[in-house]
């Protein structure tokens, strides 16, 4: 318990400031328009932020080690769930089945991309619904 008091309030404010800088990067990252870079700025930074919150705010490193293991175990099981489920869900056809709606939507999307009109159908299939906000950056 007493270990917590090693830090003053400034420590937490400083952590908060770091988190805000990271947030700014993750919002600005996609503006560069590079998909791989977006992946890093979005998810790499999310992991860093989560780590900072877990360690500096939640003090997971000051709790007994088994807590970290328990949390890690939940994440491993989620990976397991993903690994077992994704091979089926991520296919649009398989043994004796197809997903017609998916195939049609992807075909329509491919045609749209080819004609350069992608990005203008946010509500997909619901007519000419405009964007949720003008500030949304174009994704290409």
């Amino acid at each position: 318990m007493s270990a917590h008091e090693a830090h003053g309030d400034e420590f937490y404010v400083k952590t908060w400031a770091i988190l805000l800088v990271l947030l700014l990067i993750s919002v600005l990252g996609p503006l560069l328009g590079h998909p791989v870079l977006t992946l890093i700025t979005a998810f790499g930074i999310a992991v860093v932020k989560a780590y900072l919150v877990a360690v500096r705010f939640m003090h997971i490193n000051l709790t007994p080690r088994f807590v970290t293991y328990a949390v890690a175990t939940t994440l491993v099981f989620m990976l397991l769930f993903f690994a077992g489920t994704a091979p089926d869900v991520m296919k649009n056809h398989g043994t004796n089945w197809v997903k017609p709606a998916w195939i049609q939507a992807e075909a329509a999307y491919a045609a749209e991309v080819a004609s350069g009109a992608a990005g203008h159908h946010g509500a997909g299939g619901h007519g000419e619904a405009p964007h949720g906000g003008e500030a949304a950056p174009a994704h290409h």
Partner: peptide
């Protein structure tokens, strides 16, 4: 619902 973009196997 696979007819509308979902997946029953999920």
């Amino acid at each position: 619902d696979p007819d509308r973009g979902g997946d029953p196997i999920l």
